[in-house]
Design a protein around this nucleic acid. Structure first.
Lengths: 260, 260
DNA sequence: CGCAGTTTTGATTTCTGTCAACGTCTGTGG
DNA sequence: CCACAGACGTTGACAGAAATCAAAACTGCG
């Protein structure tokens, strides 16, 4: 039986109007989770495992956040490292004029903010897109696994390398590509990440993003995103309906995304 | 006496036409270097120091590259971790149409590519802007210092955090800011980084960048950079001459850079 | 049903890129 | 020392991409 999980895990400063975290009731199926691969997650370790001692696993079960909520903010102090179990979220920065830039979409298995491995403060807002389920680990315990033995653990290396490659790609896309390229690349990128998790059906995938999410991620306006997507559909490249997206003409679509 | 340093340190694949690395003759003054702060650099350790055993320091002295050369490329395999001692460099990605995006400018004390801490391959090209002097460390030895004790070393944490903050800021700037803002922010950013190294004179600094470097860093064209800079000068905000830059009206300039 | 959020569409404006010409500066070789 | 070639920076005319503005249709939800 899941017990009541304290909401203090998520952030110390909070306004009373926002009750974002609730006790979860879902089963614990997080196959894409890197913690499972690390053999580190208590949910996957036998009860007497030594892992259970070294990793402070917080709460009896996962926690959930409904869609479209702030999961954590810049100022929040968070003592735990959060991993996505289910759903989509976005980490983003906001400018003072209200413009937003999404830095990455978070999918099941992703670490919510790698900065939390090192300190209790991260530098951006994380918002749920769909209902989200995640798990919190104790930072110190996780450190025991990641920073021992005089060399980087494979999990830490690949996390660093993937995050760096992703942020470098983002910079090039935002700095040097057209609207069509940016949108096509975003879609292909998400499709690839979901495919690696076994979350696609052929060339189709669940696609909970609103056009304003695409706009925030690509540095465009929602109006222009609409025009480009309409054009993609008109040209028979993709089909979007009912929160799912299918790539119809993959080679043409890749050509748009990769050319240059 | 510096001995002949093998050029193999820099990259295994090289064309004969490019002889980029030469034996250095400069003195070893690298005060802003994080390795010095780490108390890890052999150049700063007494001869009998245990540090000398754990860090494999490569070569008797630093290595130099003349300005405007490729220091390393995507395909290069590099067994060492390189740190800037002197000069300016840029790490960048190139699109197939020749467009380039500079991901960061490397200043004295910066690590050339943090990916090399984890693997022998980095994901971007590094080019010198001025004459550059740098030092190479053995990856495994460095790992002994960074990944021991069950928690991240302070040097590793701050490296991760700073790189992430920088890349996030870059994405927001490229995605959401105007040409004026991007250029002003780049200048202020560089000024701040140099100030922290004690490399500014009041509001003036050495400024070896060509306008095409600014264009590559901001996602603009050199022509447009010229127009914006000319306008900045006309409005009495900055003065650029003879490879140095001075901010004249700092508050107005900050307003341009930060507003929004 | 009504309302708020989303998407579409068209007209217009703004920003930045492209093209081209020209002047300056720098380094090189005779 | 001079001539020259390239790289660099400036300027103006023009083109193109995306933003802005505005209105309307559509969606889902309480």
């Amino acid at each position: 039986m899941p017990t009541q999980v304290t909401t203090q895990v998520i952030g110390r400063e909070r306004d009373a109007s926002r009750e974002s975290v609730e006790t979860a009731r879902q089963p614990s199926t997080c196959s894409p989770c890197p913690m499972a691969l690390l053999d580190v997650c208590v949910a996957h370790a036998p009860p007497q495992s030594p892992v259970k001692k070294s990793i402070g696993y917080v709460g009896q079960d996962t926690q959930t956040v409904p869609r479209r909520r702030v999961i954590c903010r810049e100022q929040d102090l968070i003592d735990h490292v959060l991993f996505m179990c289910e759903g989509w979220a976005a980490s983003l920065l906001t400018l003072s004029d209200g413009n937003r830039q999404i830095l990455s979409f978070l999918l099941p298995g992703d670490i919510v903010s790698s900065m939390l491995l090192f300190q209790p403060r991260q530098n951006c807002v994380v918002e749920s897109i769909t209902d989200v389920r995640f798990r919190a680990f104790d930072r110190a315990g996780l450190g025991q696994c990641l920073f021992s033995g005089g060399k980087a653990s494979p999990a830490l290396s690949s996390l660093w390398i993937e995050e760096k490659e992703r942020s470098d790609r983002l910079a090039v896309d935002l700095g040097r590509r057209t609207a069509e390229e940016r949108i096509a690349r975003l879609i292909l990128n998400l499709m690839g990440r979901l495919a690696r998790r076994g979350m696609t059906q052929g060339r189709a995938m669940e696609f909970p993003l609103r056009q304003h999410h695409i706009a925030d991620a690509t540095g465009l306006t929602p109006v222009h995103v609409s025009k480009v997507l309409t054009d993609f559909r008109r040209r028979g490249l993709v089909q979007i309906s009912d929160r799912s997206l299918e790539i119809i003409d993959e080679s043409a679509f890749r050509r748009i995304a990769d050319i240059r």
